[in-house]
Amino acid sequence: MTPFGVYVHVPFCSVRCGYCDFNTYTADELGDGATRASYADTAIAEIRQAAASVGRRPVETVFFGGGTPTQLPAGDLVRILRAIDDEIGLVPDAEVTTEANPDSVTPESLAELRAAGFSRISFGMQSAVPHVLAMLDRTHDPDRVPLAVAWARGAGFEHVSVDLIYGTPGETLDDWRTSLDTAISMDVDHVSAYALIVEAGTAFARKVSRGEVVVPDDDETALKYELADSVLGDAGFAWYELSNWATSDAGRCRHNELYWTGADWWGIGPGAHSHLAGRRWWNVKHPAAYASRLAAGDSPEADGEDIDIATAGLEDIMLRLRLREGIEVAALKNVDAMVADGLLGVAADRVVLTLRGRLLADYVIRSVT
Rank of each mutant, 00 (worst) to 15 (best):
H159Q: 12
C253V: 10
V59G: 04
D41A: 13
Y259W: 10
L314Q: 13
V208T: 08
A94V: 03
R36E: 14
I47A: 03
V15E: 08
A148N: 06
A34N: 08
R350I: 07
A50R: 09
A52Q: 14
A235P: 08
S248K: 10
A45D: 11
D303E: 14
A37M: 06
E29A: 10
V96R: 02
D141S: 13
R206F: 07
T26Q: 03
A183Q: 13
I309L: 14
P11Q: 04
F64T: 04
A193L: 09
V213A: 11
V198L: 10
G211K: 11
P3L: 07
E199G: 07
A43D: 03
R356D: 15
R138K: 13
G5Y: 02
G33T: 06
E108N: 09
V329E: 13
M318P: 04
L332Q: 08
R56Q: 12
A116W: 05
V346A: 10
K333D: 15
V368N: 11
R206E: 15
G267V: 06
E87A: 11
W260N: 00
L223Q: 15
R56M: 06
F4Q: 01
E241M: 10
F12D: 01
R114L: 07
G271M: 02
R350K: 13
H190S: 10
V96G: 00
L196V: 08
